[in-house]
């Protein structure tokens, strides 16, 4: 049986207490929420904190509510709660979809929003046991010096494998971070680094305290996920597409897009926005040509590497197909809503 290394387990009930515990534990302390990311990593000795601080008893971090027309979500909401919530399904369908596409029902009953947003980057040279990694002389992300995905590269290319993060970046959510120095509010896009090791801008002692979603006022978003199986699997490609339709457009069929963002998951060490793809959609009615142009724009910079399931050239080709399908869904959602 794979077992966890020894550690001290703490269960604070307030943010202040959690921060204090982390300060006491120092760099060997780690926060945990659902545990579905941290514990497997600990069992394979990727992380070996000596103090694990659970955030699940901190009341402020659970539940969600509307504040100033915006939804504010606690990071310890489970993915099941998120995807089952009628409010989220209604006003933030893409968030519910992405949450529902994470792993399995069992894991979603434990895994949290915050955990998925802060998910450790993944790589099939890294997500292996200690003994396996020894056989390849380890890798840059843990215990080694080289990134085997790109041996001449100075950086680690582990992949951002969150389903919800690309959606948060696409819809322009903000993360509220609380640390010993106080609070800060950061746009989701600025919370991620394109680096497999330092993939979060959040400091280790900071806690993701809330996720603030924009008011559902005339924008729409979808999320499409590519993976081998309908459950268990992390995304090898995620496409989050967000558009803002022109306000008060009279034409029922042919509304116009005033702003758009396409964000890819599973192709870089962070959710990767493709600004060119968003740009070509502006002013269009999401007609086939516009979709094709945006999909082409999304395809070009997409640079999958040999560190997940499937061949990388196929994964790159799929960027075009999945971007197209995501945008087609947005168009048909528009038509349906207008009916």
């Amino acid at each position: 049986m794979l077992r966890l290394p020894r550690f001290t387990y703490l269960q604070p009930t307030s943010l202040a207490e959690a921060l204090r515990m982390k300060a006491d534990a120092g760099p060997d302390g780690s926060y945990v929420a659902g545990g579905t990311d941290l514990y497997p990593n600990m069992k394979r000795r990727h992380q070996t904190p000596t103090t694990v601080i659970s955030l699940m008893q901190v009341k402020d971090l659970t539940g969600w509510g509307m504040r100033d027309g915006r939804c504010v979500m606690g990071p310890c909401v489970t993915l099941t709660e998120l995807s089952d919530s009628p409010t989220v399904r209604q006003s933030y369908a893409a968030v519910a979809t992405a949450a529902e596409l994470v792993s399995t029902p069992l894991l979603r009953n434990m895994g949290t929003l915050g955990g998925n947003l802060c998910l450790d980057t993944r790589c099939n040279y890294y997500n292996q046991s200690y003994e396996w990694r020894k056989a390849i002389d380890f890798c840059m992300k843990k215990d080694g010096a080289i990134c085997w995905v790109a041996p001449s590269s100075p950086r680690c290319w582990a992949v951002s494998s969150s389903d919800v993060a690309p959606v948060m970046v696409a819809i322009g959510a903000e993360y509220q971070l609380v640390g010993p120095e106080g609070e800060r509010l950061v746009p989701a896009a600025r919370c991620y680094h394109n680096d497999g090791i330092n993939y979060l801008t959040k400091q280790p002692d900071e806690i993701l305290a809330a996720v603030r979603l924009p008011a559902p006022d005339g924008w729409d978003a979808v999320y499409h996920k590519l993976r081998r199986r309908g459950s268990f699997d992390f995304p090898v490609l995620g496409v989050a597409a967000w558009v803002r339709w022109e306000r008060g457009s009279r034409n029922a069929e042919r509304g116009t897009i005033v702003d758009a963002r396409i964000v890819l998951g599973g192709v870089a060490s962070c959710p990767q926005e493709v600004p060119e793809a968003g740009a070509v959609l502006k002013g269009t009615a999401l007609d086939d040509e516009a979709i094709a142009a945006a999909a082409e724009a999304a395809y070009r910079p997409s640079k999958p590497l040999d560190n997940t399931d499937f061949e990388l050239s196929w994964r790159k080709q799929m960027t075009r197909v999945y971007a197209t399908r995501a945008l087609q869904e947005l168009r048909s959602r528009r038509s349906r809503r207008r009916e």
Binding site: L2, G34, G35, P40, M56, T104, L106, L107, M110, F232
Partner: peptide, 26 residues
């Protein structure tokens, strides 16, 4: 023991969870 098969499923307050990724203390 990594949450990749579901074989260790138990119910926690009636909800199915992976007992391999749940601390006893929790």
């Amino acid at each position: 023991e990594l949450g990749e098969c579901g074989t260790c499923t138990v119910l926690l307050d009636g909800t199915p969870v992976l007992s391999c990724l749940l601390l006893g203390l929790a």
